[in-house]
Design a protein around this nucleic acid. Structure first.
Lengths: 123, 123
DNA sequence: TATAGTGCTATACTAAAGTATAGTGGTTAC
DNA sequence: GTAACCACTATACTTTAGTATAGCACTATA
């Protein structure tokens, strides 16, 4: 029995799985999380590099989202005391392990596009 | 090679996988989508049943989210011309197949809670 | 006639997410 | 000395998501 089938046991055990799903959603939700994670899958990046690689992101949003991702243990921030300081961002083990989730999402997304007439009408 | 590793090919092929992930995120995002899907995993439900089963949801949000889910091919709406009319909502095949995605999310979420000190600080 | 149930919609509001623009405090190159 | 790069932060704004409250058109029951 799959864990999602277990979700049908939500009445007897709601918090456990629902919270786990929400944790996962929270690290992916937001306009810029995916582009940032995608960019960091290439390896360590500095602030300005990310800014350049992600079109139209503002420094405010990049800073905010990186902080979120850091708090959530997805991204590791390293300050090198060069002059001027350089800061590097990289995915943690947790961050890299999101791969399996993204895989499942890609698979569902592609299958669903095949089936659905108008998936692009999504809000 | 996993599809998410393929995501590192984002520079050469950005739209394909990124759009698939966004499709998947879009059907799950929002305060009420998961409770609704969770409730419909038990089987067909009527509007008022969903209203009763999902604490604190307003009819406005339930109506709106069900419409979203219907447009996205996750939920099927059936009107029976009884008097007064009864309306039934159920998951489509696409909706039920979200199981695999939810499974991956549960797994990552649980693992991540083990590792992370303060995942509940997520926005 | 009144109350409650069916499946919603309308209007108006608050809160959260995201954008635009400017500026900080430092260093290095011209 | 002035322009540009580094890694941001501050302030103010717009846009989107969600809430609160009321009501519609219908029927069945007391």
């Amino acid at each position: 029995m799959s864990k999602a089938e277990d979700l049908t046991k939500v009445k007897s055990c709601p918090t456990h799985f629902v919270l786990a799903i929400n944790d996962t959603l929270n690290v992916l939700i937001g306009k810029w999380k995916l582009p940032i994670i995608g960019s960091l899958l290439f390896g360590k990046k500095r602030f300005r590099e990310l800014e350049r690689e992600i079109p139209r992101i503002t420094p405010r949003m990049l800073s905010k989202e990186l902080k979120d991702l850091e708090i959530n243990g997805i991204v590791k921030r390293t300050v090198h005391d060069t002059i001027p300081v350089t800061v590097e961002y990289e995915l943690t083990e947790s961050g890299r392990s999101l791969n399996s989730v993204l895989d499942a999402m890609i698979e569902w997304g592609l299958d669903h596009r095949k089936m659905s007439i108008a998936p692009e009408k999504a809000a």
